[in-house]
Design a protein around this nucleic acid. Structure first.
Ligand code: FES
Ligand code: FES
Lengths: 153, 153
DNA sequence: AGGAAACAGTACTGTTCTGGTCCAATTATG
DNA sequence: CATAATTGGACCAGAACAGTACTGTTTCCT
């Protein structure tokens, strides 16, 4: 459905909230603060820790902290941390496609894929927090769209 | 994984190949021409027919034909026909999100979502065929990313 | 008219992936 | 040193997806 997992959405929310705290924060605290179920936010933070998005402190009095400021973390980074690499089609980047030889459209998907990746890389968590996404989107608004004839059912 | 279904990939391949034929073409022929397994290409074409992307001719000597020229069919249209609507997060467009009230970042995802949708709408199947995707991509390359917003924390 | 070719629709099955839960390892505290 | 707090990693259930198979309907050719 071309949708990213709910975990990724939660990750963004948790990270933005975490960026507003200056001290190490535990999963339960973030859960209450964001409204995300506690086990889920815990899992998300765990994954983000392995990917280096946040740093973790084990043991009592432990918790999580951002490894980088919000401005340095892009949406794409979060998506890749949770959802895995951004690959629109399975063919890109050496996927095992049966029709690779005969499909005809060579690395065209790679281009589209790279475009999406760039777009998502341009938006940071700070943009999400400050609601300045619209501002950033001016760059990727694709003005030259002459006509958009939808499928006439 | 932020990837669209393999069926969608096949759909694009089949449509491009179909656009190169001027006559009605059958599923088996398209299968041999593209390398996609015959049952799969049949299924894809069936779906595309219901969505009005292609027109079908039943009976012997039947087959499929494009309902519109390749230049008029956008990638987004194909994706929506096969994969369903493009909604990056479940929250957009009235999804049932538990943390809707507390998540803080309001409709920010909607903006990102709309940007992706626009980008995919700007690329047509003809671009895929003619390998002119890179050309179109100039519009959504997001050059203005130089300035990082100041840390408000 | 009869048979063959091709699409239409449905249903089924196997697999993958997501989302969520549980228990073990680790560290500060008293 | 014992305890409590907190992360880390493994595990399991559910859903979504891809692929396949079958039956029915329509149309052309003989
Ligand atoms: S490589 Fe997968 S369809 Fe072309
Ligand atoms: S509405 Fe779903 S996380 Fe904000």
């Amino acid at each position: 459905m071309l949708k990213l997992s709910k975990l990724t959405d939660y990750a963004v929310v948790a990270l933005v909230r975490l960026g507003q705290k200056s001290e190490v924060t535990t999963s339960p605290v973030l859960s209450r603060s964001t409204g995300i179920p506690e086990p889920t936010v815990a899992k998300v933070l765990k994954i983000l820790a392995t990917q280096g998005i946040v740093t973790s402190q084990r043991g009592a009095r432990g918790g999580y902290r951002l490894a980088q400021p919000l401005e340095e973390i892009s949406i794409a980074a979060v998506i890749q941390a949770i959802d895995g690499p951004i690959s629109l089609t399975t063919c890109v980047d050496g996927g095992d496609c049966d029709a690779r030889a005969t499909c005809g459209l060579g690395g065209q998907w790679d281009m589209v894929n790279a475009a999406i990746r760039h777009a998502l890389s341009a938006i940071t968590l700070a943009d999400m927090k400050n609601h300045t996404v619209t501002d950033r989107l001016g760059g990727l608004h694709v003005p030259p769209v002459p006509d958009r004839p939808e499928a006439t059912a």
